[in-house]
Design a protein around this nucleic acid. Structure first.
Lengths: 148, 148
DNA sequence: ATAATTCATATAAATTTATGTTGATTTATA
DNA sequence: TATAAATCAACATAAATTTATATGAATTAT
C-alpha cells in the first residue's frame, strides 16, 4: 500500500473536527473532546497537533477554558497544507524532494513516474479545503439518512 | 510523506531492469546481476521477487544457468500491476480497500478524499507500462548526454 | 560431483505508531 | 488568592511494521 501515515490521516480528521466546531461558535475546543468524538488517543493527538501549531494552521489558547481553534476559516485551509505540516511533503519518495538523495536521478525513469504521481496527489489535495470536506460530509450524512 | 515503500520502489526498478534485458536476448537474468546494476541488496531482492512471481509477472528458472525473466512483454506489464503485487493495493489508506476497517466509512468525508486520491494514483500507474519507462529512460539518457 | 542459482526461514535493525508518566506553565473562575 | 482546567514539554516504554541481512536447503546445468 502506498501509505498515508496515521499522522496525516488523524491530523486531517482533527482539523475537520475543529472546522465543524468553528462553524458553531468560535470557542476553543479541547483535545479531550476531539479525542472522544474521533476516537483517537489524546496522547497521540497532543503529538500530532504540535506541527499543526508550528505551521500556524491552528491557534492554541492556554489555561482553563483554553483549547484549540483553526487559525483561518475552513474554506481557507487546504488539505495540502495539513499534509505538508504533518508529513513534511506530499512526495511519494525521497528522491523527488531531495535531488541529492540518489545519484541516479538523472538517468532513472522510475524517479519521473514517482514525481508525476506526487504532483497528481499534491494538485488534488491543493484544491481541496476543509470547507469542501464539511460540504461533502453533509452530503454523505443526508444520503445515509435517506437510505435508513 | 505519503510513502511508497522500498518494496514498491525497488521492485519497480527490478522489473525495469528485467525489461531492459528482455529486449536484448530473452535469457534468464540472475538476481546478482540486478543487484549489481541497481545497487540493491541481493537478499532483499530475493524477498521482493517472491510476490512478483506469485502474481505471475516474472518467471523463474531454477538451478545453475537459471534466473528470472519477465512473464510478458514490457509493453504488457503495467506499473499498477507491479505495485498491486508488492504493496497489495494502490490505496492510500486501509479504509478505502476494506470497508469494514472502520465503521465511520459512511459518514467520514476524509475517507472520500483518500479514495479519490487513490483512484488518481491508480489510474496513472495503470496507463504506464515498463515499455513506457524504457522509452522515458532513453530520452533522459540522451538529454543527459547532450548536456555533457 | 560441483557450482550456480532459486527458495525458504530466521534474525536483526530501524522506523512508525501509540501509550504512559511526570511535571511545569498558563488562565478562568469561585 | 486558591483551585481546577488546560496546554506545553520532555521523556520513557512498547508493540507493530518496514527494511535489511544471514544461513542453509533444494534444484539443475555442466
Amino acid at each position: 500500500m502506498i501509505k498515508l501515515s496515521t499522522k496525516g490521516r488523524y491530523g486531517t480528521r482533527l482539523m475537520l473536527n475543529l472546522a465543524k466546531h468553528y462553524n458553531d461558535r468560535k470557542e476553543a475546543i479541547i483535545l479531550k473532546s476531539v479525542s472522544d468524538e474521533e476516537e483517537i488517543s489524546i496522547r497521540y493527538l497532543e503529538q500530532i497537533i504540535i506541527p499543526l501549531k508550528i505551521s500556524k494552521l491552528v491557534k492554541s489558547i492556554r489555561g482553563a477554558g483554553g483549547g484549540y481553534t483553526l487559525a483561518r476559516k475552513p474554506a481557507e485551509i487546504k488539505v495540502s497544507e495539513i499534509l505538508q505540516a504533518l508529513e513534511g511533503t506530499c512526495c511519494l519518495v525521497d528522491c523527488v524532494e531531495d535531488e541529492d538523495y540518489c545519484d541516479r536521478v538523472n538517468i532513472c525513469a522510475t524517479h519521473d513516474i514517482w514525481e508525476k504521481a506526487s504532483t497528481l496527489l499534491h494538485d488534488y489535495f491543493d484544491k481541496t479545503t476543509l470547507q469542501d470536506l464539511m460540504t461533502q460530509e453533509k452530503k454523505k450524512k443526508a444520503k445515509a439518512k435517506a437510505k435508513a
